[in-house]
């Protein structure tokens, strides 16, 4: 059982309350929780694309494998030239923890796997990520399972995701993360799954111990999927308000979709879209649409356009 402090930190991390996590004061370095909380805090920074502060947060000369892994992930996600070496570093760390004499607790090893798995998944190394995380080996690291499930979902294998989920249900004791996993699967599989996700996010929104605009966005997206566009929009608007008017990419992208589906909101959709493309040019929706635009031109060129019918002088 985690200490209640660590529990709270994990809860905030999983439910996307990164802002409050970033502002968290770290416990005493000698405490047991120090390393794991530092890891989550660092990961919250990374989630907010604030990789620079990692170097100040995590001492460069740390011997701790989990912390090493996190700083490697930070380097990787910063997208600079250091990306490839960082990936290599993570690979090395993975090999290291497999060794007999690895100087790390089980929990730290787990964290290393999770962090490495995240990086591999980001890099598109699906097989490597799954292997690192221990897919289909009955791993009892729920975070690893969460990532495995998401990888499965991203390669359109909800069946495998569900299998992994059912397996972890045996031992995970109804953990919050487990419910989150179920919700993610629900979002992809649809029908009853939407109801699962929707209830989960609604429940967590009522959770008194944290508030996270990410939850609102998540429910907004769920409602979009359920076809409740107006309700979705109000969720998203609330999320924007909670983020002080400067929404993250996800909320903005969802807002574009919501506006696009509401009648009479075409102008708004275009405006939001322009903002999305300028503020978050790397968001997958932007890149997907850009790619589609190129394809359009390519395909359209295949059709011969005949001359316009112009009446000869009558």
């Amino acid at each position: 059982m985690d200490s209640s402090e660590l529990y709270n930190v994990k809860q905030q991390f999983f439910l996307g309350a990164f802002k409050s996590l970033v502002d968290l004061t770290l416990p005493d370095p000698s405490s047991d929780d120090y390393t794991p909380i530092l890891v989550y805090k660092a990961r919250a920074h990374i989630a907010l694309d604030d990789t620079k502060s990692i170097s100040t947060l995590v001492p460069a000369d740390t011997e701790n494998l989990a912390l090493k892994a996190v700083s490697a992930l930070a380097k990787y996600t910063s997208g600079t030239d250091a990306a490839d070496p960082a990936l290599e570093e993570l690979r090395d760390l993975c090999v290291e923890i497999e060794g007999e004499d690895a100087d790390a607790s089980e929990r730290e090893k787990g964290l290393v796997r999770v962090v490495a798995g995240t990086a591999f998944a980001r890099a598109g190394e699906v097989e490597e990520a799954l292997e690192t995380l221990g897919a289909e080996t009955g791993t009892e690291n729920l975070e690893a399972v969460a990532i495995i499930v998401q990888i499965y979902l991203s390669i359109h294998r909800p069946d495998l995701a569900r299998k992994e989920f059912e397996r972890s249900k045996q031992w995970a004791e109804d953990d919050l993360l487990l419910q989150l996993i179920e919700a993610s699967i629900g979002l992809v599989s649809g029908k009853d799954g939407y109801a699962d996700s929707s209830s989960f996010f609604t429940e967590q929104l009522a959770n008194p111990s944290l508030s996270s605009p990410h939850l609102l966005t998540s429910r907004g997206v769920t409602r979009l999927l359920r076809g409740e566009i107006v309700e979705a929009k109000s969720d998203l608007e609330e999320a924007v308000a909670q983020q002080g008017g400067h929404e993250d990419a996800e909320t903005l992208a969802a807002s574009v979709v919501a506006a696009g589906l509401l009648p009479g909101k075409k102008g708004e959709a275009e405006q939001l879209w322009t903002r999305l493309t300028t503020e978050y040019p790397t968001h997958p929706l932007v890149s997907a649409v850009n790619e589609k635009a190129e394809q359009f031109d390519e395909f359209a060129a295949k059709y011969q356009v005949p001359p316009l019918a112009i009446p000869t002088a009558a």
């Binding site: 990961r43 919250a44 995240t118 990532i147 993610s184 996800e250 979709v257 959709a269």
Partner: peptide
């Protein structure tokens, strides 16, 4: 554009394409 949403349930992973 209006038929696709993205959501990141797990931080730092590429978002799920919904």
């Amino acid at each position: 554009r209006s038929a696709h949403a993205y959501l990141t349930p797990i931080a730092s992973l590429p978002p799920l394409h919904l």
